[in-house]
Amino acid sequence: MKTRQTLAPLALAVLLVTGCAKPPAEQIEAAEKAVKEAQQSGAATYTAQEYAKLEGALAALKKEVGDQDGKFALLRDYGKAEQLAASAKADGERVKTEATKKKEETKVAALQAQQVAQDAVKSTLDLVAKAPVGKDRAALEAIKNDAEALKSSLNQVQIALDKEDFPTAQAQAQAIHDKSQAVSAEIQNALAKVGKGKPSPSKKK
């Protein structure tokens, strides 16, 4: 009987100590890491809405932990925080995968546009090169100037690609392609006219 009386407060103390719940630090850390990795994968750009929701989930998790921290120790319950952390971690990983995929798709589209633009500029430059030397070079000189400008503009696409600004790279490449086609058409018209004359000897001017 005496022993029981001695053990009772001890058991209560143990109960009090073990009854004090602790925040799920590891899970929270894992969730934060997943969100950060999603952000680093470009989620804010490529899956903006998903990323915003992910940040929202992280904020909700922190609020829940804060709410529980604010309660009397014995009443704290971090079960919901654990759930939120697990869900944020899973979402973070999913968003990272999606963002990586989307980024890769955008990159592939930009690279394809760059290739198409390069081909278009090359055929424009080939057309300029075909122009007979000394034969109404004057008519082709201005167009040649434009073709050279298109060639140097391709560097801008590369710069945008290097900066991973794929939407700008794609828009630039598309514009170069369109302009190249217009310049090519102009050269073909000029060449069609020039073709009717006889070649001129090379002259000083």
């Binding site: 000189e141 201005a142 100037n145 434009d146 400008a149 503009s153 598309q174 514009a175 302009k179």
Partner: peptide, 22 residues
């Protein structure tokens, strides 16, 4: 005066095309 302007008219035109595409 087209030659006088060098490559700038094409560069300007490309920027305008990009603005339209955006």
């Amino acid at each position: 005066g087209r030659i006088v302007l060098g490559e700038t008219p094409v560069q300007t035109d490309l920027l305008i095309k990009q603005a339209r595409s955006f």
